[in-house]
Simulated assay, not measured.
Amino acid sequence: MALPALFAPGGVSAQRTKAAASRRIGVLWLGAASTTFGPTSREVLLRDTLRQLGWVEGRNLAVETRYVGDGVDPVRSVQDLLATRVDALVAMGSPIALAARHVTGALPVVFVVFGDPVEFGLIDSLARPGGNLTGIYMPTAEHAGKRLALLRDAVPATTRIAVFNFADSRARVEARNTQAAAQKLGVQLVEMNLNGLADLDDAFLECKRAGATALTVLTEPRTSVHLGRVAEMSLAHRLPSVAGYAGFAWLGGFMAYGADGGEGIRRAASFVARILDGARPADLPVEQSTRYVLALNIKTARTLGVRFPRALVRYANVVIS
């Protein structure tokens, strides 16, 4: 991955020669500790990037890690980390970032979120975040139509595609864009309204009864915690599926198209390094992820009896076999 600005000469780099005082950061991940969204675990990627930027765990940096899975209160998790007297906090996911905004006071917070952080109420504006939060965001709604079109390209015979919706979902714009794309593509969306993740099993059964032959997964935080389960159930119910999380395919999903989470983690590390060197979050404009990944899982496709078109395979960034 080429990120020249991250390691530019004259900036903070692995060649840092000055002695750095030991600092402590807290990192909150959305999901379970075992979650892996690529060939390198997200935890290792963050630590490796910080090391390249001169902040080495065990030498001048301590890292406190917590996981916010299903049923875990993000506010309590943030407060738990604050009790360890961290110098900065990394919030991986919008529910965690929102919790941090309410309880961290002046403590610097770097977030990585899917969706618009201004719309979420995390910051005042992208250019001037204000307050104690800054970070990276990955647009999702803008690419809803592209995801649906790619799924249709992969499974051209499908005319009914299921989509899960939560009553209080933050993916409302993405849902509307998905509906508009479906009309243009001439496919019918089968909308499954869920009150919570406990309804997931019944929703999959209802998809089949409604005649859906494929599934698109909205980039909703509660779904992201259970991406592996969604991928497994999609396979069990023989529904080719697409998600906006690029790591979905690594977890066994049929295909994924979305912002590269690895880039988000690397950029978050660069924000952390600058803050540890004295920068204020209010002075660091929020950045938009610019690298998008199309990932195809050939093994899952084979199990489903689907063959990806050659043109789609050539277009893909990641092909998992």
Score class of each variant (00 low, 15 high):
Gly11Tyr: 01
Gly11Trp: 02
Gly11Val: 04
Val12Pro: 08
Val12Leu: 14
Ser13Val: 09
Ser13Tyr: 02
Ala14Gly: 15
Ala14His: 09
Ala14Phe: 08
Ala14Gln: 12
Gln15His: 11
Gln15Arg: 09
Gln15Met: 10
Arg16Gln: 11
Thr17Gln: 08
Thr17Ser: 10
Thr17Val: 07
Lys18Arg: 12
Ala19Cys: 01
Ala19Leu: 13
Ala19Gln: 10
Ala19Met: 07
Ala20Leu: 13
Ala20Val: 07
Ala20Arg: 04
Ala21Ile: 03
Ala21Cys: 04
Ala21Arg: 11
Ser22Thr: 13
Ser22Ala: 14
Arg23Met: 06
Arg23Phe: 01
Arg23His: 08
Arg24Cys: 08
Ile25Tyr: 00
Ile25Asp: 00
Ile25Asn: 00
Ile25Thr: 04
Ile25Leu: 08
Ile25Glu: 00
Gly26Tyr: 00
Gly26Phe: 02
Gly26Trp: 01
Gly26Thr: 07
Val27Met: 03
Leu28His: 02
Leu28Ile: 10
Trp29Met: 05
Trp29Arg: 05
Leu30Gln: 05
Leu30Trp: 02
Leu30Pro: 00
Leu30Met: 11
Gly31Lys: 01
Gly31Arg: 00
Gly31Phe: 02
Gly31Pro: 01
Ala32Phe: 07
Ala32Arg: 10
Ala33His: 09
Ala33Phe: 07
Ala33Asn: 08
Ala33Glu: 15
Ser34Thr: 12
Ser34Met: 06
Ser34Leu: 09
Thr35Phe: 07
Thr35His: 11
Thr35Glu: 13
Thr35Leu: 12
Thr36Val: 15
Thr36Met: 10
Phe37Leu: 15
Phe37Met: 15
Gly38Cys: 13
Pro39Glu: 12
Thr40Ser: 14
Thr40Trp: 08
Thr40Arg: 15
Thr40Tyr: 08
Ser41Asp: 13
Arg42Phe: 13
Glu43Trp: 10
Glu43His: 13
Val44Leu: 14
Val44Thr: 15
Val44Trp: 11
Val44Gly: 08
Val44Met: 12
Leu45Thr: 14
Leu45Lys: 12
Leu45Phe: 07
Leu46Val: 07
Leu46Trp: 02
Leu46Ile: 11
Arg47Trp: 02
Arg47Tyr: 03
Arg47Leu: 11
Arg47Met: 07
Arg47Ser: 12
Thr49Pro: 03
Leu50Pro: 02
Leu50Trp: 04
Arg51Ile: 06
Arg51His: 11
Gln52Gly: 15
Gln52Leu: 12
Leu53Ser: 01
Leu53Arg: 00
Leu53Tyr: 01
Leu53Cys: 03
Gly54Ser: 03
Trp55Glu: 04
Trp55Ile: 03
Trp55Thr: 02
Trp55Phe: 08
Trp55Asn: 02
Val56Pro: 03
Val56His: 05
Val56Arg: 10
Val56Cys: 04
Glu57Met: 05
Glu57Leu: 05
Glu57Pro: 03
Gly58Pro: 03
Gly58His: 05
Gly58Gln: 05
Gly58Asn: 05
Gly58Met: 07
Gly58Cys: 09
Arg59Thr: 13
Arg59His: 06
Asn60Pro: 05
